[in-house]
């Protein structure tokens, strides 16, 4: 079982080595000419007016919560999809009930404006 992951693990190691090697190479090979004005973060020619490191409203937090809900739904659907031909009518009805409940939930979020963007 675990042996089948050997290839993936080796590929992971080699890919990491390539990526690290690229970063190291570009750090070593590139020139280093630094002065104060150049090191400022880019902001269309201005000095930075506000720092990005402060609290700000993440508008899509609701979407993030919905993502967790629907992704867990997808997790339930994967094994069901594999076994569907064996489950037959029982599987269909069971999953229809499940999808219906989630569909009602999606409709609720939709009508309450949870998916709207200004």
């Amino acid at each position: 079982m675990l042996e089948s992951y050997t290839g993936a693990a080796i590929l992971l190691l080699i890919a990491t080595a390539i990526a690290v090697g690229m970063v190291v190479a570009t750090t070593i090979l590139g020139p280093k000419r630094q002065f104060a004005d150049k090191m400022e973060p880019f902001e269309c020619g201005e000095s930075q007016l506000v720092s990005p490191y402060q609290r700000f409203s993440v508008k899509f937090y609701l979407v993030a919560v919905l993502f967790i809900l629907f992704d867990i739904e997808a997790v339930f659907l994967f094994p069901w999809a594999i076994l569907y031909k064996k489950l037959g009518l029982f599987g269909l009805i069971e999953m229809m009930v499940f999808l219906l409940i989630l569909g009602v939930g999606l409709m609720y979020v939709w009508i309450r404006g949870g998916l709207d963007w200004e």
């Binding site: 979407v63 993030a64 993502f67 629907f70 997808a74 659907l77 999809a81 594999i82 569907y84």
Partner: peptide, 20 residues
């Protein structure tokens, strides 16, 4: 972040038909 998580769900659900 918001785009990736939005389409992650859709992408996962669209291939369930193929798996079935």
């Amino acid at each position: 972040a918001s785009q990736m998580i939005s389409y992650e769900v859709a992408m996962g659900l669209t291939i369930i038909g193929v798996l079935m």
